[in-house]
Structures are given as structure tokens and as C-alpha cells.
Amino acid sequence: MWTKLVPVTALIASVSLTGGTAYAAPTTPVGGEALGSRGLVTPEGVKEPPKTQATSYVIADADTGEVLAAKDPHGRFLPASTLKTLTALTLIPKLDKDRKIRPSENACNQEGTAVGLSVKATYKIDDLFRALMMSSGNDAAMALAETNGGVAKTMSDMNALAKRLQAYDTVAKTPSGLDKPGQSSSAYDLALIARAGLANPAFRGYISTKTSKFPAPKGYYEISNHNKLLWRYKGMIGVKNGWTSKALGSFVGAASRDGHTIVVSIMRHEGYFWDEVAKLLDWGFSVRGKVQPVGRLVDPLSEVQAVPRSSAPPASKVTPAAQPPLLDTAASKQTDSTRTIGSVVIGGGLLFGLIWLGFGIRRRRRRSGS
């Protein structure tokens, strides 16, 4: 048995942000009933996953889509640069990788982590995708968005793809993942997006490249992948890490062993998470194919599909969340540390709460993330 806490994303109808196809959101948590919990959800008969400081995580079999364990999987948090997975997945099919561009001053002057674009240099789109996924270049993210027709169009494209993937917790407001009011994702959605990315050969190539030469106004310089596990973890394919002072640490990664791939996503980690992620991956490999999954990563929708109701596998044990249910404090007590959206039933009615971080944030370069 589990305690059901349905995320607000499962209760509100979704409409297309592009004015095109509309997708109606499901009435149960995407991936299964058990994934509506804000606590730890694990299969019966095995030890719980290793401890992690992450507020939210998902461990899944990328081949089958089976979710092996999760903690607050649909909790909405700031994604930081893990959002670049959606940026890449959206734009790779839209932009010719051999096209050459000169970036704008706006792109070159983006705050936070940058690859070092120059208005005096010419870059292939292929170079910019490597800068985006290897070096987490916010300048590259903006240059790609501008090449796609501008930030507004790119946000529309990214949000439309998120809906088609059934990543309903995800709202993109920036191509780089830099914090902005209203932007969000979840550990479940990051795993869903990463799984879709792994099926794209170009995406997979960018995330797995360790080092590469990058153009400069005169010559080249070397860039390296920020994913430390590419050097440390056996079978690591890659994907993306992120950090801002508001979002804290986030990461989604995939590794393959003996023909099987495990994906792990974490959000809102306060410290050094690499060793913890490695242990979560190890746990995933150790139990895959041996336990009843607690949910599943759903498949993308076609453009004419409505969202199907998610059915839960006969799960598992659910440990109550350490944090309180959403909206258990009054709106007057909201602070800059509030990072969730939720709902609570009061007197038979539904009170929707929107608690957004970031209003009036004055960003400084040294606090910006990767």
C-alpha cells in the first residue's frame, strides 16, 4: 500500500504552448499511482537504494522504461542546466549541424557558465551542441535558440516537446536552464527526457564525448565534459549535470553494462553528488530484472493522442516523505527557498497552490550555474 499524493500536474488539463496540438493531462500520476508519493518508493524484497542527500530522484531501466525506485519523483524543482537536455533534444532535429553562424553579442554575453563564444569567430551548429552538452555553455544555448528563430520560438518548441514526451512537470523558460520564475522540471521528467535523448544518435554522441577541440577567433582550444562520471564510472554514457545557487545540484545520467542501460536523475542536492549517483547506478544494475517495478517511464505521444491514464504496477513499499505535503503553510510564509507546486484538498474542494521561486531575483555571474 502507499499514500497517494497526486501532483498538481496530474490534476490540471494541459494545453499546447504553441497553439497547435493540445494534450490533456492525465488524472493519475504519470508513470503509475505509486509515483504520486512524495516519499521513498522502493520494490519489495530488496534493500533500499543507497542514501543520498538529493531531495528527489528516479532510478530506471532505460531499456524497458521500468522505474526501479524513486523519491518524490514528480516534485517540481528548478532544473538548472539539466534543462539543456530538453534544449538539445528539441533543436538537434531542427538545425543543420554543418550550418555555420556568427553568434550575437547577446549570446556571447550570457551570464554563468560559458564556453567562450566570440562575435569574431564562426561556429558550426555541431560545435555549439558540443559546447552546450559538454561545457554547459549558456552562451551556446542562446546562440542555438537565436538560430532557431529566437528565444520565444525555442521556448515554445521545447515546451511542446515536453508535452509530447509527457514530461508535464517541465516548464522551460530559458534555453540554458538559468533560473527564471515559472521554470521547473522533476526527476521523473529528467529521466524521461534523457531516455528519449539516448535514442538519438547525435544527442548520444554529444553527451558521451570527453574532450574536443573548439573553434576560437584564431585557432582552437580544448573543451572537456563536465560530467565527472565519464572518467570514473564503468559504462558511463553521459548526460548532464547542473547547478545554480537557487536550484542547487541536479544531474541526470545513464550507464550501460552487459547490454543494459540504467538512468538515474537527482534534483536539489546540496553537496558533492557524484559518488552517491554512482552508488544509485550500482543499485539499479543489481536489481534490474529481479524486482517488480514501482512505475514506468512512459512513451511519447503521437500528435493526435490524448494522454492515457497511467496504471500502477502492484508496487511496493512507500516510505513517507520527510518533507511536509505541499501547501501545508500559508502563502504568506512563502520564501525564496520555496520550490514546489502543489495541491491540497480542503473541505471537499481543491485548493491549487502555485509557489514559485525566483521573483525579483537579481542574478550575479558568480552565482550562476552550469
Score class of each variant (00 low, 15 high):
164 R>F: 13
187 A>K: 06
191 A>C: 03
173 K>H: 11
182 G>L: 12
178 L>I: 08
183 Q>N: 07
180 K>C: 02
158 M>F: 09
162 A>D: 06
182 G>R: 12
185 S>M: 04
198 L>V: 13
194 A>W: 03
173 K>Q: 13
181 P>S: 04
190 L>K: 10
169 D>R: 09
193 I>D: 01
197 G>M: 03
193 I>G: 00
189 D>M: 01
189 D>Y: 00
165 L>K: 05
179 D>T: 06
163 K>M: 12
176 S>D: 06
169 D>P: 08
185 S>R: 07
184 S>V: 00
184 S>A: 06
178 L>R: 11
192 L>D: 01
188 Y>R: 12
184 S>P: 03
170 T>P: 10
190 L>N: 10
160 A>H: 14
157 D>I: 00
174 T>E: 00
200 N>S: 11
168 Y>D: 09
166 Q>P: 10
182 G>Q: 12
174 T>Y: 05
186 S>V: 08
157 D>Y: 02
158 M>V: 09
191 A>Q: 02
193 I>M: 02
162 A>R: 07
161 L>D: 08
169 D>K: 09
183 Q>W: 05
175 P>K: 09
179 D>K: 04
186 S>C: 03
175 P>T: 10
169 D>H: 08
155 M>P: 08
156 S>D: 15
165 L>E: 10
195 R>H: 02
172 A>P: 10
167 A>C: 14
164 R>Y: 14
158 M>A: 13
160 A>G: 15
176 S>N: 00
188 Y>E: 15
195 R>G: 04
186 S>N: 03
190 L>Q: 15
155 M>K: 06
164 R>G: 14
163 K>S: 13
193 I>R: 05
195 R>W: 07
172 A>L: 09
188 Y>P: 14
163 K>G: 10
181 P>V: 15
187 A>E: 09
188 Y>M: 15
175 P>V: 07
163 K>N: 14
178 L>F: 01
163 K>A: 13
163 K>F: 10
160 A>M: 15
182 G>Y: 11
158 M>I: 08
197 G>I: 03
197 G>L: 05
190 L>F: 03
192 L>T: 10
198 L>S: 12
192 L>V: 03
184 S>Q: 04
164 R>A: 15
200 N>Y: 03
199 A>I: 09
168 Y>C: 07
199 A>V: 01
187 A>G: 10
180 K>T: 13
199 A>H: 12
169 D>I: 09
175 P>G: 09
182 G>I: 12
156 S>F: 08
200 N>W: 07
176 S>P: 04
171 V>Q: 08
196 A>W: 07
188 Y>D: 14
158 M>C: 12
192 L>N: 06
164 R>M: 15
195 R>L: 05
191 A>P: 00
199 A>K: 15
177 G>H: 10
170 T>S: 14
180 K>F: 13
159 N>R: 04
191 A>I: 00
177 G>M: 11
166 Q>C: 12
162 A>I: 06
183 Q>T: 01
156 S>W: 05
167 A>T: 13
193 I>S: 02
190 L>E: 14
189 D>A: 02
198 L>M: 13
155 M>H: 00
200 N>K: 04
187 A>T: 11
162 A>T: 02
184 S>L: 00
175 P>I: 07
194 A>P: 07
170 T>R: 13
183 Q>F: 02
157 D>N: 03
180 K>H: 14
